[in-house]
């Protein structure tokens, strides 16, 4: 098993596990964490890919750097929304259904 393959496999493993986490965990912070970890899985893959040839390829590194910036801002935004949601309705879970979807109560 070459290092590249190892990185690849572990990255895919992390990606899948975190995807599972994103789906099954209801708590918003866990979901955000899962997303972050997924991002890391991709970065892992990219760094692995960079080591493929004789010389280290700089392009994936640039991508990882950019990706981290994006991930940071996305996480920040997600946390802000999660916090506001908690403030508005007092819980940190997403309802499984849209609250206004099937409710009989109507505005008026």
């Amino acid at each position: 098993m070459s290092p590249v393959t190892f990185y690849l496999l572990s990255s895919v493993g992390i990606f899948v596990v975190c995807l599972y986490g994103l789906i099954v965990h209801a708590h918003l912070i866990r979901k955000i964490l899962a997303l972050n970890m997924m991002g890391s899985a991709v970065f892992l893959l990219l760094t692995g890919v960079a080591r493929r040839g004789e010389l280290t390829d700089p392009v994936p590194h640039a991508m990882v750097l950019t990706g981290i910036v994006v991930a940071v801002s996305a996480t920040a935004f997600a946390l802000a929304v999660a916090r506001r949601l908690y403030e508005e309705c007092g819980r940190a879970y997403l309802p499984e259904e849209d609250p206004e979807d099937l409710s009989e109560e109507r505005e008026g």
């Binding site: 995807l19 599972y20 994103l22 789906i23 099954v24 209801a26 997403l94 499984e96 259904e97 849209d98 979807d101 099937l102």
Partner: peptide, 11 residues
């Protein structure tokens, strides 16, 4: 339709 909105199902 509402079942498909459950996260697990969607996943």
């Amino acid at each position: 339709e509402s079942w498909a909105q459950v996260w697990i199902v969607a996943g």
